[in-house]
């Protein structure tokens, strides 16, 4: 068979990114070899885009030996869903989109139930349902240790009970690059090939590898409204404006992408990758600053993770 070379004419990666790439590929291959039913969680964001790119590299010239699952809350930015469908078609991926049917039935929205309950039902519970339906014993995720304090201690293989619970006090030691993939029936692991990447690494890699992204990551004039100290995109009819809220147009971009009512934009003039990276290097706030769900309770992320959130 003819082996396709995707990197003709592209300059080689610098040693820093090459080391991170090698580590991630190693993890992908190890999980794919040791587990019976792996799956990759695909959230359409920049980290997922990098994760997918690394997966394609790991199994080249073969296809991905596992499907992708996307947890669709119904409240994602429309541009994200369009982008997802393009990516699936381009790479011939096997993608399963799952929405929590209970949440749909009960008409759970970020407005009706508050961000904490909404996230639990439409993301955490939905994820557990999708993993149970597929009987997956390993799920790749794009989490990084630099994102949040409780993630700094999470292993690359993060073990979950049959209820998908994480016990941060009872993690297996992880030495060298030797991963213990032995689990009992019903248990599973979440595997994090991007554990050692930082936000700047992600952006540099996207640039070096020319990875396509949802356009929301780049600045453009967008309709926004101020709410709870965040700039919310005001383009969806389902967003009901409060009496004192005014929609205005501003040059903004998003540093992370989630559900549009819970994801704040940042003022930015960065319309290219170079400009985004420059902006990041002088940034004084972390990327999760725009995520309402991290802040709704103290120790928020650890609590969500214990309950099965990615």
């Amino acid at each position: 068979m003819n082996v396709i070379e995707h990197g003709r004419g592209k300059p080689p990666l610098d040693p820093h990114l090459k080391a991170l790439e090698n580590e991630a590929i190693h993890i992908f291959r190890e999980v794919a070899a040791e587990f019976e039913r792996p799956v990759m969680l695909y959230s359409i964001g920049k980290d997922s885009s990098v994760l997918l790119h690394l997966a394609l590299k790991a199994f080249h010239p073969g296809k991905l030996p596992f499907p992708l699952v996307h947890i669709d809350t119904g409240w994602k930015f429309p541009e994200m869903i369009a982008f997802r469908d393009q990516v699936v078609a381009k790479h011939g991926l096997d993608l399963i989109a799952h929405t929590n049917p209970d949440g749909l039935r009960d008409q759970v929205t970020p407005f009706s139930h508050g961000s904490a309950r909404y996230t639990d039902i439409m993301k955490t519970q939905a994820l557990k349902q999708a993993l149970d339906i597929g009987k997956y014993d390993a799920a790749f995720g794009g989490a990084r240790r630099d994102e949040e304090a409780s993630r700094a201690k999470e292993r690359i293989y993060s073990f979950r009970t049959s209820d998908h619970a994480w016990d941060p006090r009872n993690q297996r030691p992880e030495l060298w690059s030797i991963y213990n993939g032995m689990i009992h029936a019903g248990e599973s692991v979440r595997a994090f090939p991007l554990s050692n990447w930082t936000e700047v690494d992600i952006w540099r890699y996207i640039q070096a590898e020319r990875i396509d992204l949802v356009p929301l990551y780049f600045a453009a004039r967008r309709k926004i409204v101020e709410r709870d100290g965040m700039m919310i995109l005001a383009e969806d009819k389902r967003l009901e404006l409060l009496p004192d809220e005014i929609v205005r147009e501003e040059m903004v971009r998003f540093r992370t992408l989630g559900c549009f009512p819970l994801t704040g934009a940042v003022p930015s003039s960065a319309t290219t990758l170079d400009e985004v990276i420059t902006e990041l290097e002088i940034a004084t706030v972390s990327e999760r600053q725009g995520r309402a769900i991290d802040r709704d309770q103290s120790g928020s992320m650890e609590k969500k993770k214990r309950e099965g959130y990615f």
């Binding site: 630099d146 993630r151 201690k153 120790g299 650890e302």
Partner: peptide, 24 residues
């Protein structure tokens, strides 16, 4: 507090596990 990310640690005031930090 910046380093001791897990609630159990904050409550007990000790570091109980290996944490990984990144800087340049």
């Amino acid at each position: 507090l910046l380093l001791d990310g897990l609630q159990a640690e904050r409550e007990q005031g000790i570091t109980i596990d290996v944490a990984y930090r990144y800087f340049s």
